[in-house]
Amino acid sequence: MSAVRTFIEHYNYVITILLMMAGLYIVVARGNMVKKLVGLSIFQTSVYLLYIEPGKILGATAPILDPAFKVYSNPLPHVLILTAIVVGIATVALGLALVVRINEAYGTVEEDEIFERDRDA
């Protein structure tokens, strides 16, 4: 019973972990390079959540100083994740650029077909 309770109370972490696993699974299991990048992106997104969730304090407000409020949420995770998003976008952009070039060079973006073509060559 308490396990279920813990589970429900931390549902946000459960979602994070599910996303994490789903993303990683796609990266490993899919041979299509675009799908791999999608998986990678999901994987990274889960980390954004991981950072932002603990920053939120229930009943707290945005960190703008005002005499009316005493409790503020932590703003730092947002800043960090903004940076991480930039890194993530750069990664996916570069990855897609590589996929385009691979498609030009090999005529496919399926990994097993590419290996086959390299073996034939």
Partner: peptide, 16 residues
Amino acid sequence: RRALLSAFQYLIMGTI
């Protein structure tokens, strides 16, 4: 051309 493939594989592993 295999350089592209290696770079892509490295990108996936490195990002993980």
